[in-house]
């Protein structure tokens, strides 16, 4: 699993990149009450704001970590936003992307580097 400075995690699953948010991000957000996901088939560029996540405290955006196409989204977290707090690294993944080169995720932090990053 790899981690971005925007507190997203990435892992590879059957030639796709699965993206979610870290436990740190989930804890900072507080109770999540609303999630809006992109449409399957959307072409995205790294840095595009493609997910809206609202907690009891505030609205935040989640950006695409890489260029690519959204191939699947996790509607379970739209129906039950609280899953983002309960299991951010597992059940509450956000979307899957098709990217040109799976090796691109190697540029992101590994777990140790991310732990250091969040201090």
């Amino acid at each position: 699993m790899k981690f971005t400075e925007d507190h997203e995690w990435l892992r590879i699953d059957n030639d796709h990149v699965v993206v979610g948010i870290t436990e740190h991000a989930s804890a900072q957000l507080g109770d999540v009450v609303f999630v809006e996901l992109p449409e399957v088939g959307t072409q995205v560029a790294a840095g595009d704001e493609i997910v809206v996540i609202e907690s009891v405290k505030a609205a935040s955006d989640i950006t695409a970590p890489l260029d690519g196409e959204i191939v699947e989204v996790n509607n379970a977290i739209v129906d039950e936003p609280g899953k983002v707090n309960d299991d951010p690294l597992g059940e509450a993944w956000f979307f899957k992307m098709k990217v040109a080169d799976l090796d691109e995720i190697d540029k992101f932090m590994d777990e140790d580097a991310y732990k250091e990053f969040v201090g």
Binding site: H7, Q28, A58, S60
Partner: peptide, 9 residues
């Protein structure tokens, strides 16, 4: 009060 983005800690 509502607060700023919790991502910007």
């Amino acid at each position: 009060e509502t607060h700023g983005s919790p991502r910007k800690t």
